[in-house]
Design a protein around this nucleic acid. Sequence first.
DNA 1: GATGAATGAGGATTCATTCAT
DNA 2: CATGAATGAATCCTCATTCAT
Lengths: 232, 232, 232, 232
Amino acid sequence: MSLSKLFCDKTSGVAAKRERRKEARPGELLDAALDLFVEKGFAATRAEEVAARAGVSKGTLFLYFQSKEELFKAVVRENISGRFTEWRAELDAFEGTSPELLAYCMNSWWERVGATRASGITKLMMSEAKNFPDLAAFYQQEVIQPGQALIRCILQRGIDRGEFRPMDLNYAVYLVIAPMIFLILSRHSAGICLSKEADLDPKQYIATQVDAILNGIGAPAASAAQPTRKTA
Amino acid sequence: MSLSKLFCDKTSGVAAKRERRKEARPGELLDAALDLFVEKGFAATRAEEVAARAGVSKGTLFLYFQSKEELFKAVVRENISGRFTEWRAELDAFEGTSPELLAYCMNSWWERVGATRASGITKLMMSEAKNFPDLAAFYQQEVIQPGQALIRCILQRGIDRGEFRPMDLNYAVYLVIAPMIFLILSRHSAGICLSKEADLDPKQYIATQVDAILNGIGAPAASAAQPTRKTA
Amino acid sequence: MSLSKLFCDKTSGVAAKRERRKEARPGELLDAALDLFVEKGFAATRAEEVAARAGVSKGTLFLYFQSKEELFKAVVRENISGRFTEWRAELDAFEGTSPELLAYCMNSWWERVGATRASGITKLMMSEAKNFPDLAAFYQQEVIQPGQALIRCILQRGIDRGEFRPMDLNYAVYLVIAPMIFLILSRHSAGICLSKEADLDPKQYIATQVDAILNGIGAPAASAAQPTRKTA
Amino acid sequence: MSLSKLFCDKTSGVAAKRERRKEARPGELLDAALDLFVEKGFAATRAEEVAARAGVSKGTLFLYFQSKEELFKAVVRENISGRFTEWRAELDAFEGTSPELLAYCMNSWWERVGATRASGITKLMMSEAKNFPDLAAFYQQEVIQPGQALIRCILQRGIDRGEFRPMDLNYAVYLVIAPMIFLILSRHSAGICLSKEADLDPKQYIATQVDAILNGIGAPAASAAQPTRKTA
DNA sequence: GATGAATGAGGATTCATTCAT
DNA sequence: CATGAATGAATCCTCATTCAT
């Protein structure tokens, strides 16, 4: 929690429990708010609920956040960790094939982002983008752009190494993004979009998607002779 | 507009202007409501706004819909036309290859659903599913299930004809669904998820997705020799 | 329903049924309004309900009565028949003893007023007097004053004839009025004030009251000598 | 005020001004509500008015009472103090004659109930019983039944001691109840039922009623022998 | 006249926000 | 700092009343 970091590292070694709690307050509120905003949406979440879930009183919430809207923005900003530089480094250091890299990235995205509560902010942004244009722009800049750039890099790497065929990357990035977004939204929308019975396994979902992206679903034998392949 | 039918069929040819308006009112209100709900979300849309956009007064809205919530439900129901049987018929009559069928279906989905305002309710449902569990269930049953069944059919057809390789359909259906859902959400979420500059062309987006689903993005020549293919 | 009316009665040369109904409209509305006002109170009665019960449309009600308030006033005025002159005549012509007269009057009041729907307006006035001061004044003048005067006459007659002992009539009138008002209110207030099980018989209630007013409930021994007791 | 008790008993002597107000709020609101409901009826009383009279804002009212209807119910419940056991004790301890007991009871009822604002709820119940059937039942059980039982006891005592003549108590109770209900209603209905000029003196009204109940209004000659007459 | 669709003022209720303690 | 009582703007919804047909 980056915000909490601002308050850490005080000098005392005997930090009283209460002190510690005080420092943790903003983080606890952001935590509670994230859960509730994701679950019920911005408007349907009451400030008092957030406070209650964080174990403080209504008034305290407004001690740390000027308004519910500011709380929302803080929740989004807080959970947009700039993990991209870290990822970029991994990407640059990767030594396997590009298909392997792609598979690695999507799986690691799932573990580090998709499966965590952080994925909830994506759902939040999709639901509230129109009501928070400035936040949407911020999100665009901090998450979407770097994320797309990362994927572009991977795809470009594959093309450069002759492992992927040439593509219009402006569209190809969505081959990777769409399945991830879909996965997130399914999980945060009461399972809408999913066939009810199967609460699909994310790992297998991703495996299926990766395989299809790389190889398509065309019949293996036929694939070489497919006329559609040539025209494409 | 199925709801309007309830009000049609008056025998008289002398239908007064007032009468004609009355018949049209529910539809006009649902239209206005769909626009606003999709644009701003359920909670952020005021009943009076909906009425105003439909060109009537606040009170009139409640003449046709018991509450804002009922209006919401009606909006969802209204826009779930049973287009599935029609599609099923087309599917059964289709004579081309399964890849062609898949391409045809996704393009025709775009034209008949994705590009229309009806697609807005999908976004609506994703945002509000948690707040309207009964509606979510209804949507599941009326839209998701039939939609998935349709896609299953197409894939099964391809497998049966040797045009697609064998797959676990429980996961494969999302190869088709995910890109469509993503496209819808992009367009109804202030372009979040999209690289800002390009307001991507849906046709080309779909073409790219279809091509990848069918053929993958593996390099043409290499694809046959790909080691990942074998292990996958 | 209303549609059929459009087709009926067209040809008849005799005073059409519709004509007669038209004349009856105000009365039917007042009837319906009385029932509803008594049952639910002024505010809780909706204009549309009154119209519906009278078998006409909302608009028609306002054709005959400028406002709901006017309707209320009309209901009260309509049901305050000046039966007092008639009663005064009976009183003057009465030849029995004053105790007999009193008993006769209370019983006849029950039959002519208490048991009829007209008694409902008394309840109405008690409930709404504060909200309709002008009506209250009107009611005072048209009903209360003449009514009290009548009772005063009876009591005075008894005193003059030595059948009643001298009393302060300003207070004695309520010996007669209170039981009647109570009876009415009990019947129009969901039985409040009544011991639940017994839906008390008005005739016997009145008999008990009359007997007590005349003879008191004092011990039998003492009252054995009372001549009035024997006749009662 | 029984409700306030729920909030009392704070141990601290440093009770802050805010705290003290909070304890008093429900009572103040109930007070204000009683006045207004009695004066104008339930529907004609606006929630904001009640709040204003209690010296708080609209919102505060709903902090203590879930809805206007709940406020109404609380008003009724609050003013039904279980004074009946207390009265029963007095009755059992009474040593005078039964006529004296009856007179004592009616006078003390006036002082303890009739003359207080609590009497207003009787008028309330009569006006709104049909709209609040559950409350009416509650009132029946909590007030009417015990009240009637008390009166029955008094009358039965008189009969047993040979001071009252035998009566059908099911009807005789109303000899006592009717005058009291009437008195209350007169005072809460803008004086309707009263001859305008005289704003009748309750004490004398009750004295007249008691005298009549005990002795009747029969001619002096007959009742000269009555022992009860002398003591009354 | 009669109708009932439309209106909009009015009132109940919610909840973000403030501030005295 | 923390609290939670108090506030009142905002919004849903009702229903008396109007008026085009």
